[in-house]
Amino acid sequence: MAKPMEEIRWQDLEIGAVVSEPGCSREYKTGSWRSMRPVVDKDQCIRCGVCWLYCPDAAIDRSEEGHFQADLDYCKGCGICARECPVGCITMVIEEG
């Protein structure tokens, strides 16, 4: 978004509050909501992709080596990946600070 939200006047909105740059929710980093962070033990990970399937925010990416890791810009720390991982390789760790 070109302007910070606080500076946008009603006159600046597109008709019907249409967003003319689609996909701009990418700029909204929901990772700041997180209180728990998923940490993957790569030695245990079998690269099955169950966490990737279950992530409700599509915030898990696959690394070049085939491991799955949360994108911490968007991961809200819900812990579904840790709960669903069939080998239990994901631990939820409290975010400090």
């Binding site: 909105l13 019907g16 509050a17 967003v19 689609p22 996909g23």
Partner: peptide
């Protein structure tokens, strides 16, 4: 491509309502 019917934060909802009223 555009996005219609988006989510608005409290920072934007008031302005969207003013636009409707106007």
């Amino acid at each position: 491509p555009v996005s219609m019917g988006c989510f608005a934060m409290p920072e934007m909802y008031t302005e969207a309502q003013m636009a409707r009223e106007k």
